[in-house]
Amino acid sequence: MDPFSPEGELINLHTAFHTGRFAAVASATTSSLSAANALPARILQLRARIAISPSSAAAVAKELASESSPVDLVAARTLAEHVASPSKDGPKDKALALSQSDGDNLTVQLCCGTILANAGQTAEALALLAKHQGSLDAVALITQIHLAANRLDLAVAELRNARAWAQDSLLVNIAESWAGLRAGGEKYQAAFYVFEELATAPPVPLGGDGEEETAGTAKALLGQAIAELHLGRLPEAEAALGTALERGPDDADVLATAVTLNTILGKDAERQAMLGRLAKANKEHPLLVDAQAKKDLFDSATAKWTPKFEVEA
């Protein structure tokens, strides 16, 4: 039986992971799970911890430093190392090696696929992920890689395939929303519904020792806010984003979206504040990188005009 199928033990954990309840997943009690599910559960928890923050990822890397088998843990460690310090080449090489040697292992596919995608080696990443055996995580990652490469058509095809066998699974719905946000038009609305559902659904208790959570993680709310932003409903987007900021005050993606939204709303003071917080949360965030690139571009473009102007003057 597929451990992630609705009747499976891991469904709640898996759902929680993909709705962004990383802390809850990390602290969930897994002792009651059957032996077969112990490893997948552990991997999910490790991935959740990696996703929380780079520093938390570093802790994972340290914790797993001595593990050499099973290969799942090695893959997780590699991902942790990569996330902890994205600029290093070591984990990337390791990922490539792992994908050659243990390409059939799902954890390897997911962790190394992520690393390769981050490193821009999309062809390798896709080749590795293509080996998956009915894993929705892999489908989601493939979808994302396609989207990042502006191949909406491929992403949609991938999802259509997945829907054929995974039916109404939550992750398929989420991944469809990602594609929907790229497709635009009425798909925005559909995506909005999915995120809104995620954001308002009460969290399933996972038995962790964490505090009781409220409905809606930063991630789900962010999705909702982005969908609303795209739908042109700015006040609603602002409200959702506000809630997302409460849930995840240091979430770089939330902050980045807040920058965008405040720019659109023309709220300069808030935007500067968000930019500051974003720089603190993640200096490497694409928004900051892109903004810097555009600043440079502007200056170089202006340079073409200025001298000419001065000559005339």
């Binding site: 959740a48 965030h285 694409p286």
Partner: peptide, 12 residues
């Protein structure tokens, strides 16, 4: 806008 879809994967 930037969408972090899959955890730890690149932003779209």
């Amino acid at each position: 806008s930037y969408l972090r879809a899959f955890s730890s994967a690149p932003v779209i």
